[in-house]
């Protein structure tokens, strides 16, 4: 808690204390902490003289901000047109079942974040799954198990 508070105060010190700084501060907090915690919302609100509701209202509007700590690894299943045609949807269903986490959430053990992405720009290799910064091409449900097991 202490370390989190310290990095929050560092971030808040870098911006003028006015409502207009809200989005840059949120971005910076997320870069430092990986997510926007309840404490962060409280501290930001106090620093900018907003209410927590106002800060949270703005933050939750944007898809780029998350409110839960990031998991150790992030899995992104591409559901763009090409990947969709080649079975991306099935991969997603499979992963949700295997990991026991719905799309857009994390596994309870904090191992994986499960998300979708619209296109990774390598449609010829579809369907594509990205884990952290590793790209896996022509993934099948059989291959998927091996990929997932490679990350702890």
């Amino acid at each position: 808690m202490g370390a989190e508070n310290q990095s929050l105060q560092t971030v808040l010190g870098q911006f003028p204390a006015e409502a207009g700084s809200l989005i840059p501060i949120l971005q910076s907090v997320q870069a430092h902490l990986g997510y926007i915690s309840a404490q962060a919302v409280c501290e930001i609100a106090q620093a900018l003289r907003l209410t927590e509701s106002q800060v949270y209202g703005v933050a939750s509007f944007y898809a780029q901000f998350r409110f839960t700590p990031p998991a150790r690894h992030g899995i992104c299943v591409c559901l763009g047109t090409a990947c969709h045609v080649r079975g991306g949807e099935r991969l997603m269903e499979n992963l949700q079942r295997e990991l026991g986490a719905a799309m857009g959430t994390s596994t309870s053990d904090g191992r994986f974040d499960l998300d979708r992405v619209a296109c990774l720009g390598c449609c010829a290799l579809s369907p594509v799954v990205k884990v952290d910064s590793d790209i896996y091409s022509s993934v099948t449900t059989m291959k998927l198990k091996g990929i997932v097991n490679g990350y702890e």
Binding site: E52, S53, Q54, Y56, G57, S60, F61
Partner: peptide
Amino acid sequence: AVLSFRQRGHLTTIGPA
């Protein structure tokens, strides 16, 4: 300012943080 819009689109709800 206790109430604000949370999320957006059809997921929008109204309430505090």
